[in-house]
């Protein structure tokens, strides 16, 4: 048992306690441990340092190291709450928590607002939305005339920017999302319900089992 014990301790050494992370999120302790299996695999894909770099995050998302993606970068930056340029295990679990089907809608709404508020001013500005639209069109190799893009922006801001000041604030976003619930679809990952079956090997590294024995 001594050998197994030291191996288990090594696996989570330096990372936040799964029991504490479970208490802060929609995940059970077993699910946090299963997420550690995923975290290990992503964080060791380029440099095995127990942290996820932007390059490793992108590699896990796109299976290649192609050019930077604005949207993947936004998610990475929001997971990286301490702005270290790296995601630790706690950041990873708390970030994914927002995407759990059971996470509160308000957390999903706040996260999505930050996602689109590129410069972090507390407002989603028309210029930011245009920048994201152009980035999306570029990455999907679609072309739209500038007047078509402006027309899409006009329509969106007529609906969302109710006080017509040219930017969307948090309360306007809340109302807009309420009318367009599909906007929060990207904020829910059904996979997170089945994380323990996707990564069953967590059982062999379980801290909880270790405590029980």
């Amino acid at each position: 048992m001594g050998c197994f014990h030291s191996k288990v301790k090594k696996k989570l050494r330096g990372h936040e306690d799964p029991v504490v992370l479970a208490s802060q999120t929609a995940f059970s302790v077993s699910e946090v441990e299963a997420l550690f299996e995923l975290f290990k695999s992503i964080s060791s894909s380029v440099i095995d340092d127990g942290l996820i770099s932007k390059e490793e995050f992108q590699l896990a998302l796109f299976k290649n190291r192609k050019k930077e993606n604005l949207f993947a970068n936004r998610i990475f930056d929001l997971f990286d709450v301490k702005q270290k340029g790296l995601i630790d295990f706690g950041d990873f679990v708390r970030g994914l928590h927002v995407f759990h089907p059971n996470a509160p809608q308000e957390e999903k709404m706040n996260f999505s607002f930050k996602l689109y508020d590129l410069d972090g001013t507390g407002f989603i500005e028309r210029q930011e939305v245009k920048q994201m639209l152009i980035a999306l069109l570029c990455e999907s190799e679609m072309k739209l005339a500038d007047e078509t893009i402006e027309s899409i922006l006009d329509k969106t801001f007529v609906e969302a920017d109710t006080n017509q000041d040219g930017k969307i604030d948090k309360s306007e976003w809340q109302i807009f999302v309420g009318r367009n619930p599909s906007l929060l679809k990207i904020m829910t990952l059904p996979y997170l319900r089945d994380i323990t079956t996707t990564f069953p090997s967590f059982v062999f590294h379980s801290e909880v089992d270790e405590v029980a024995t």
Partner: peptide, 24 residues
């Protein structure tokens, strides 16, 4: 052009974290 800008933006694969869970 009756599309909503955010619905279009959300189509980016960069926002689709489900690929994190796909094993090679």
């Amino acid at each position: 052009t009756c599309l909503n800008a955010f619905d279009i933006i959300s189509l980016s694969p960069g926002f689709d974290l489900s690929s994190l869970f796909e094993k090679d």
